[in-house]
Design a protein around this nucleic acid. Sequence first.
RNA 1: GCCCCCGUAGCCCAACCGGCAGAGGCAGGCCCCUUAAAAGGGUUCCAGUGUGGGUUCGAAUCCCACCGGGGGCACCA
Length: 810
Amino acid sequence: MEAFDPHTIERRWQQVWNDEKTWQVPNDATGPLAYVLEMLPYTSGDPHVGHLKNYAVGDAVAHFYRRRGHTVLHPMGYDAFGLPAEGHAIRTGKNPRVSTDESIASFRRQFSDWGISIDWSREFATHQPEYYRWTQWIFLQMFGKGLAYRREASVNWCPHDATVLANEQVVDGRCERCGFLVEVRQLEQWFYRITDYAQRLLDDLDGVEWPEKVKTMQRNWIGRSEGAAVTFRCAEMSSAYEVFTTRPDTLFGATFFVLAPEHPDVLKLAEGTEREREVRAYVEQALVADQFERSSSSRPKTGVPLGRTVTNPATGAEIPMYVADYVLAEYGTGAVMGVPAQDQRDWDFATAFGLSIVRTVQPPADFDGEAYTGDGPAVNSQFLDGLSIADAKPAMIEWLGEESLGESRVTFRLRDWLLSRQRYWGCPIPIVYCDDCGLVPVPEDELPVLLPVIEDYAPKGRSPLAAAEDWVNTPCPRCGGPGRRETDTMDTFVDSSWYFLRYCDPHNETAPWDRSVVDRWMPIDQYIGGVEHAILHLLYARFFCKVFADLGLVGFQEPFKRLFTQGMITRNGTKMSKSKGNSVSPGDIVARYGADTARCYVLFMAPPIMGGDWTDEGLEGVHRFLTRLWRLAQDVRAESADDRRDGGDDLLLIRASHRAISKVTDDIDGQFAFNTAIAAVMSLVKEVSRIHHEGDASAIARREALVTAASLLFPFAPHTATEVYLDLTGERVWEQPWPEADQRYLVADTIEYPIQINGKVRSRITVPADASTADVQALALAEEKIVELLAGKDPRKVIVVPGRMVNLVL
RNA sequence: GCCCCCGUAGCCCAACCGGCAGAGGCAGGCCCCUUAAAAGGGUUCCAGUGUGGGUUCGAAUCCCACCGGGGGCACCA
């Protein structure tokens, strides 16, 4: 007999799907629609096993939706601009256009080799002018609404990549990409006003079906705090300073006042006092200090008195002012009231500087800590005394309002999204600087502003585009006078914040998309990707959607209805990396075992939501299973048709088939438990094999069982499943509906009950499935061995769990 | 330091609402097939669920404490 040859089979079906455009869907499709999407690949280098897993998961979901009657949009594109792609180009000595296009070709080839069911008619890459023209158009809409703006600010600067970074791209004080320590610089940069949407981004998380973990990460990142703004007056300078506090109830305990070193008034306040020199030195040192180091809570508190006081608005007392670097300039107002008795940081500072500490919440008698943050009656707080924190807060806010000293306020941790980059390989920002007109947007009909081809694109601290004089110098679109183009490019995350909308209408030349088309497909029914995007891509894309909704460009608020985040594949327990030499190339695996084996294995090795450790042995096990299924199918096909037999092994096979249908359907539908779904198909095939070799089932019964196995396996191993299904039925499995489990075959005629005495299994009885609880109890008590063990005693209690077991308690 | 997830056989992993610890795979043993080997087929061994308590007729599952691994947050007032 001929051998199982996955490569021939896989090429055959890939050819068919390609020639017949099987997975292509029209925008005017009728019936239920579904949009299944995996995060688009970032194209620097070649695909790795993480990609294989991502698209194997998504493809299984897409196939499942299709076979359950949906028209499924399942497109593909490439995230092509950005730093890593440029870095890859520099490392390989190629122009980014060339190296990126090579990478795209590599991804495209492998997606095809893996047999992923993609509608190729919608393919695009974000570095193509036909695409980024609309990225620029979106920028202009945002600019027009004041949602894209330019301002000077303290920003994160990566000295290695020679560019600024968004807050989201700084991890533990280091550049997310290269790991270099990030510096703070005062620079004028472009921002998207995502903070305007903080509350909505927070609220709408409640309506999406996402992993709680990811929602929590976004909530933390947005960081909403409720509290009050309180004004402290400095009489001698006739100035006033506002603080934000989440504990207005503790105002009577504010015994000092602290400004951040970056606070604009610090030097002015110290001027002329004996502390001036000391303050100046402290501020200078704080500004150049390592940010990560500075923001460590374990560091001892430092600071310098400003030689001034402010008035505590509640007590009327004059309290000393300090500058200290534990206060952050960018959060709240850059100033805080020091309440040492109820805040550990303030406690640490007060003890270091010998400041007074006044309890305003009575700690319990056994409290032996320092600052007390728990609840308790207010003390030393005049009109608040005796109130709990929850009651004291509104009471204080009301009083502050009456006295015009403060008001309730909500503060967010989220910062605006810094979108400009001083790098070459990105989407140009469509703005012209004119001496007379200022910032002038490039008119929409002049888009795209093409990224010029330049020789030297190496990073040098300002955008390499600045060197392209011909490109930079351009007439002002408004007055026609001399103008200069913006030379910064956009963050890659801008490109990927709207790509899923373009898939709906990829060839539209007059708009980024047609709203009616997008509203048909969106929001995405199932989005799939790595958890590393929890607060980057996933937050930015949500922000964009809300802006589009406000602009009337889309009819929904949230882009991703359901989200699945896959776990990372490791090898020998550690992350795969080329430098460690433990990486596995999906290309090599597919070349050796075929795509179906590779796909099934990454799904089978562990629940896809978890990580999994790659072993070559495990891979071979899956390959053996596919081989066994195929060979069994060949054997059964060769047999001549016969008649079904009632009962016996025929019935066993029917039951096994329906059990498998039920299990696989539940596993895919509910929880992406593809590992157990595949195991259930293995189980079925094993049963067919056993009966085939030593049972007496009819050929038709064995054939039907294998047909079911192939049908269920199709989402995971589409080529092998298609081949087997065709061999046994003459039909194309992807054109067949998903099988349905028949309840009649799922329930057994008889049930075996274990009989426990005091929780230990002592005997067993087999009873008809429809026996009543009383019958089961009677039969259990009458069972020979049990009668013997009871020796005439009556059990104290008899527990019968229907369908499960019987427990006798003595 | 705080929060979340995970610890089940030599290994990867199952176990519905608390009800016989085992679905599937790997590795190992044995048998069949084979002149032999590989491939293949069959069969079998192996844990009482990280540790210690608790609740319960009954705990891998629920509760508490601890240990180990992973992730997130971390001077956000």
